[in-house]
Design a protein around this nucleic acid. Structure first.
Lengths: 193, 193
DNA sequence: ATCTATAATTCTACGGTGTAGAATTGTTGG
DNA sequence: CCAACAATTCTACACCGTAGAATTATAGAT
């Protein structure tokens, strides 16, 4: 006596029907809950639907993951430009890290996607925060490169840290060091010019 | 007519018999060649042996990967202490990155392993290079933390960079920024003390 | 109203993964 | 010569992503 026998073919329409948005929502939930990317089968089963139903809405798993990623990254902290820039920067970084931590596997999708709109989401917020510094373009991009790679490195470290040794506040020190480096480099340039 | 039919049971001894070392060697080769961790079946087939034979030498795949990782990390550049420390540091970083790049998947194994002897391999070499700076312990560890996470971040970026936009020389800028930060912070401390 | 195209779903199946367990065969020490 | 053990293969299981076909309901055209 199989419980899982579902009626085949297109179901009669009702409001709780399957949906791109519903799939994405449940997938996000499962990622956060089970700490990792769920299998299509697990996701489908949680939606009380056959695995292949997912493929009616997304051409493959990666496409689904990219949609999730884009949506999650857009939820990142929006800096307030009237506050202390260092404080705002730290807040942005931690918001970013918390998302990467909560949704394990996100970073790889993010870095592998062809579209760089998610990356721009971070870049734009970063830009907004550091405008008061009025850095030269080269300095700004050096700052950004170092910061982003550092955050990603911390993120993979944290995702591998089963013993929960790492805390988000551990980044304060490193961020401070980066900022000191940027300010020092910028001042040095000023003296030369 | 199956070609793959091999004789079962323990084979008569000969010098080219299976071996921990042989498995590790072939696995490294395949990782470098195919740009990623091979399946146990692929590895076994390359060794002309059944997949399960591998499990006589390693209790599971992860144990094999840890052995590979440890062995690869130990091949890292050995700094010469009489040269310019900044140059030596850059050389160490690039040697580390090249290994992580050549053997995709290494970083995750490295960070997930319980044993921290591979991590120490980097730390020791780092320590050796920056002794001339005579930093305080706290400064030294802040330097190391930032540097290591940055390198790991760069490494995952590179491993996701299908279009080969990134080059190892792109790190020069960021490393310089880190160094500036460390030196600036150290000088600031000196003034206060 | 009926007929048709198409949208939405399930089922089955394929080739891949790691690996547990049993069967097989050679070697070695008593 | 026999018993233990070492080294191997085979079979099988439970997963994975997903292609392809079958099935059913809906929407639009006549």
């Amino acid at each position: 006596m199989k419980v899982n026998e579902r009626k085949r073919g297109r179901p009669p329409k009702k409001k709780d029907g399957l949906d791109k948005a519903l799939i994405v929502q449940k997938a996000k939930f499962l990622m956060a809950e089970k700490q990792g990317i769920p299998s299509i089968r697990a996701l489908a089963s949680e939606l009380s639907v056959d695995a292949m139903a997912i493929y009616h809405y997304f051409k493959n798993k990666n496409e689904l993951l990219e949609v999730i990623t884009t949506s999650l990254i857009l939820d990142m902290y929006e800096p307030k430009s009237d506050k202390d820039w260092q404080y705002e920067l730290l807040k942005l970084c931690k918001s970013y890290l918390k998302t990467l931590d909560k949704y394990d596997g996100l970073l790889n999708v993010l870095l592998t996607m062809e579209s760089d709109s998610p990356a721009e989401a971070f870049t734009n917020r970063f830009q907004q925060i550091i405008t008061p510094l009025s850095l030269k373009e080269k300095e700004r991009s050096a700052f950004l490169d170092l910061l982003v790679d550092y955050l990603h490195g911390f993120s993979v470290a944290k995702s591998c840290d089963k013993l929960s040794i790492l805390s988000f506040d551990d980044i304060d020190q490193s961020i401070q060091l980066i900022i000191n480096g940027v300010l020092a480099s910028s001042k040095a340039k000023l003296h030369i010019d």
